[in-house]
Each structure stands twice: as structure tokens, then as C-alpha cells.
Amino acid sequence: MNIFRLAGDMTHLMSIVVLLLKMHTIKSCAGISLKTQELYALVFITRYLDIFTDFVSLYNTVMKIFFLGTSISIVWYMRYHKVVKQSYDKDHDTFRHYFLILPCFLLALIINDEFTFREVLWTFSLYLEAVAIIPQLVLLQRTKNIDNLTGNYVFFLGAYRGLYILNWIYRYFTDSHYRRKGITWTSGIVQTLLYADFFYYYIRSWRRNERLNLPA
């Protein structure tokens, strides 16, 4: 475990804490895309099928349980919590997430490291994670007043994979047992690039001390 990986995991964790904080304390999910949240739940469910069979470390297992539990409970909150669901911006969250799921699944069937049930699903989860933010970014562009918690949530979520890229570079040079992981790296780079535009406006609004607003 190097500092980049740890920092990546911590920003990922932070993003979820920020989102849960928003839902728990102000009982609101305004500006949050349910489509994206459902995609993340699917990402973690398909990626962490190994939770009961492969033990890497206590840290990994605990984190996997955390990501699985929180992603599913966030979807539950947005769909069923009688207060939270009222703030869900259904009319603007119209991206068809099925259009992302199907191509990712087909791609995982074609391009994978090993044609097994678990490996294909793992690969699918990487492809899907790379693009899962798209409905959220679309919703942000349609949202007039993006609140701080939502902006920070997306920022932490984007920073996480960017830090993982630094971790991969570090491991590539320092860990002789570390293999080439083309699928992971490519997906991670695509995932981070999707945030480029958002990062630009996020940092600009932060420096100018202005409210975050994405141009349409």
C-alpha cells in the first residue's frame, strides 16, 4: 500500500461520506443522480463477488463491505426514504443508464484477461465505473444551483481514480510482482478524463470563491 493508493481510497470514502451526510442531515438528494448511484451499486456488486472467496487483507474486505453497503443504501434512500426521495430531481435525471450498461457488458465479453464468469464481471465493473458518472455530470449541467456538498461529492469521486493512476505508475516502477493491467489503467484514465471539464470549473469557482456553476 502506497500513499497514492491510500489517498485514492480515502477520497473515495470521503465522497460517499459527503453524500451520506447530505442525505442524513439535510434529508436531501437534490442534484444527485439516481442513475449514477444505481450504476455504482451495480459496479460494486459485480466487482466484489470475490469478497467471500479471495482474501487480500482485512483493509480490502472492510472497504469492500463499506462500498457495497453504502452504495446500496444510497439507492434505497433516494428511491424509498419518504423525505429524501421528494428532493430527487427526477425530471432532469433522464439519462438512460441502460445505454451504458449494455455496451460495457458487451465490451467485457470481448475484451477481458480471462473468459470466466467472475473475470468478465470484474472487467464489466471497470468499464461501467469509468462511465457511471455521466448521468451525474449531465444532471449537474442542468442544475442551476449546485450546492457545496454535491460539488464536493463529485470532486472527491473524480479525484479518487486520478490518485489511483499515480498509484499504478508508482507500483509499476517499484513492485516487481505487479503486472501490466491494461484494462484497469485504460478504464481509470478514461474515468478521470471524463471529470476534466468538471475539475476545471470546480477549481475555478473555488479560487474565485464563487458558487459552482457548469455552463450548459
Binding site: 493508493r5 481510497d9 473515495h12 470475490d50 479471495d54 487480500v56 487483507s57 480490502n60 472497504m63 469492500k64 462500498f67 484477461d113 480471462e114 473475470e119 470484474w122 489511483y164 498509484n167 503486472r179 484497469t184
Partner: peptide, 10 residues
Amino acid sequence: ESKPTEHDEL
């Protein structure tokens, strides 16, 4: 020999 794909990251 270890598996072709080991997933030790999250």
C-alpha cells in the same frame, strides 16, 4: 504460479 489476474485493489 499465480493467477493471470489478481485483484488486490478496490
